[in-house]
Design a protein around this nucleic acid. Structure first.
Lengths: 157, 157
DNA sequence: ATGTATGCAAACCATTTGCAATGAC
DNA sequence: GTCATTGCAAATGGTTTGCATACAT
């Protein structure tokens, strides 16, 4: 997340996307690049609504259909990840230059945080499962973020 | 899952549900008990459709609204668990007498299996997370079940 | 008798699809 | 000029809601 790298990131993911579009014979439209750039400008998790709003703020209105369409392309070329955290709405995040991590989900305010534990990861990666060939996994930890934990403690005392 | 216990399970969960309904001043309707009993008769994971079908097979038609309503009650009194495995449809399973477990999800056929690893669980339970108070977590492992792994291997060779 | 629970149908919300118009190639 | 992509609006699918009727209390 080095500031000096940020321009590089745009270039790199832009180029990766371009390669993918070329190989697939898809067109390089301004909408597609606007969406990609915005995703890599925002650091955190987002859903369709927040992405749409953010685009509107940049004076770049993109229709719902195109948003979903483009997100699917970005999923296909591994530039975006998609999550379902028990709500109906899907949550997305950028995939490039974003190390593997788990998620902490506050059941009070809905805040989503990344969580890393290399020790835990190495254990998970080395799990031997009978009659099953794992490709990937996700670990979601539900509970209270520090802000909500404090709030609720005060309320109850 | 001892056969001799099965009648006991119905009695126990029925009583727990009854207590909950009494405390909440909710009514004890035949629909609610039919749904509860069916859930505890079927061992595995189910969604709204399969639950509805199974009820119809018992000649007990229950409307969609009532199914969702009752499932919410059963969630509230901890007799049922709800999952989202990345699909739109929620998946449920009974909670009583059903030890904590993870899930193996076949990305080819959609099969859901339980998965246990006490060693892993104790590590997860003892995770100390800064600025976060965990209440529960879930670990979903995606990959290929043995049947699909064999099928795909044959196809590719 | 009272008022909650039911069934039904309509509403809702995220996502997908169909189609005419636009614009990348 | 061609045909993929866009925007729009309608369709879809899971879930929720509103309301008149049925029934647990």
């Amino acid at each position: 997340m080095d500031k000096d790298d940020s321009n590089n990131i745009y270039e790199i993911v832009g180029q990766k996307f371009a390669e993918y579009l070329t190989v697939k014979n898809y067109r390089k439209t301004p909408e597609r690049y606007a969406i990609l750039n915005l995703i890599y400008a925002e650091q955190r998790h987002f859903d369709i609504d927040s992405l749409s709003e953010a685009l509107t703020k940049c004076n770049f209105r993109v229709s719902r259909g195109t948003l979903y369409n483009t997100l699917q392309l970005l999923l296909d070329c591994n530039l975006v990840l998609k999550h379902q955290f028990g709500k109906n709405t899907s949550v997305y995040e950028r995939a490039y230059n974003n190390d593997f991590h788990h998620h902490l989900l506050c059941t009070n305010c809905g805040k989503i945080q990344n969580y890393n534990d290399e020790n835990l990861d190495s254990i998970l990666k080395n799990e031997k499962i009978k009659y099953f060939t794992p490709t990937h996994y996700n670990l979601n930890i539900y509970g209270l973020c520090s802000v909500c934990a404090k709030k609720l403690k005060t309320k109850n005392s």
